[in-house]
Amino acid sequence: MKFTRTKIEDVVIIEPTIHGDERGYFLETFRQDKLEDFLGFKFNFCQDNESKSSKGVLRGLHYQIAPFAQTKLVRVIKGKVLDVAVDIRKNSLTFGQYVSVELSADNKKQLFIPRGFAHGFVVLEDDTIFAYKVDNYYSPEYDRGIAFDDKDLNIDWIIKKEELKLSSKDMKQLKLNETDDLFEFGVDYYV
């Protein structure tokens, strides 16, 4: 496995080693020991999630607040997405900045998104299957979001706004500067 820090170094791209021949391929999609060694801290994924979406669906930008904040490890099983992680850690040098990475069944890249980030993705191919691990259970009372079209974030979602398909929840999220439910930079969320 290859681990690469992004421009926001806490967000990491993971590229598996693919062993293939005429029969097909094999790869390890997750190795906790190797990821923890690279990151320098421990975590424990406890829930796996999966969604199927058509082209143009945008899900996000979502996060959960303490005590149910979540680290995510995301990947695409079928199709293609543009995946986005936004730093929402107050006083962070990269607060309000984002990382976007194309994840696909073809490139098999994964994105590690730590607590303190809002996450979203836009689907670039029909029938895309998106899967992810989280290290805390889903809790509706602690679920929050940020507007996907917040002008201060200026995220390029690739697909025109009028062609996006959003849930009613995602159409009415607050802008980053309107929410008080943010994280403190430097707080250890992995204790």
Rank of each mutant, 00 (worst) to 15 (best):
Tyr142Arg: 10
Glu162Tyr: 06
Lys161Ala: 12
Thr179Asn: 09
Leu39Gln: 07
Ser54Gly: 12
Tyr190Thr: 09
Lys161Gln: 13
Leu73Asp: 01
Met171Asp: 14
Ile159Glu: 08
Val134Pro: 07
Phe117Glu: 10
Ile159Thr: 06
Pro140Thr: 05
Arg31Thr: 12
Leu39Ser: 03
Lys109Tyr: 06
Lys90Val: 14
Ile113Ala: 04
Tyr98Val: 03
Trp157Lys: 05
Thr179Lys: 06
Arg115Trp: 11
Leu176Arg: 11
Gln32Ser: 15
Glu178Leu: 12
Trp157Asp: 09
Glu102Met: 01
Asp150Gln: 00
Glu162Pro: 10
Asn91Gln: 15
Ile129Ser: 00
Leu124Phe: 06
Ser104Cys: 04
Thr4Met: 09
Gly56Tyr: 04
Phe121Asp: 01
Thr128Arg: 03
Glu102Leu: 00
Lys161Phe: 07
Ala118Leu: 11
Leu153Phe: 02
Val11Lys: 01
Phe43Cys: 03
Glu9Leu: 09
Glu184Trp: 13
Val191Gly: 14
Val187Glu: 05
Lys52Ser: 04
Ile155Val: 12
Phe45Glu: 03
Gln110Trp: 02
Ser167Lys: 08
Phe117Cys: 10
Leu166Thr: 08
Pro16Ile: 07
Val187Trp: 00
Lys2Tyr: 07
Glu163Leu: 13
Ser104Glu: 03
Gly96Asp: 13
Phe43Ala: 02
Lys169Pro: 11
Val101Ile: 11
Lys133Pro: 13
Arg23His: 13
Glu36Leu: 06
Ile159Ala: 05
Ile88Leu: 07
Gln110His: 00
Phe30Asp: 10
Phe185Leu: 10
Leu176Lys: 10
Gly79Phe: 04
Arg89Gln: 12
Lys175Phe: 15
Phe185Gly: 04
Lys109Gly: 01
Asp87Ile: 03
Lys80Pro: 06
Phe130Asp: 00
Gln173Tyr: 14
Phe38Arg: 06
Asp143Ala: 10
Ile18Ser: 00
Phe26Val: 05
Phe43Ile: 02
Arg89His: 08
Leu73Cys: 03
Lys2His: 10
Ile77Cys: 13
Gln64Ile: 01
Ile14Tyr: 07
Asp21Asn: 13
Met171Ser: 15
Lys78Ile: 12
Gln64Phe: 04
Tyr138Ala: 11
Leu82Thr: 01
Glu163Gly: 05
Asp143Glu: 15
Leu166Glu: 12
Asp21Val: 05
Lys133Gln: 15
Gln97Arg: 14
Lys34Tyr: 14
Gly40Glu: 00
Val99Ala: 06
Gly96Lys: 05
Gln173Lys: 14
Val74Tyr: 06
Glu36Ala: 08
Leu39Pro: 02
Leu103Thr: 03
Pro114Glu: 11
Lys78Asp: 13
Lys133Asn: 15
Asp48Asn: 13
Phe45Asp: 04
Gly96Glu: 12
Thr4Ala: 00
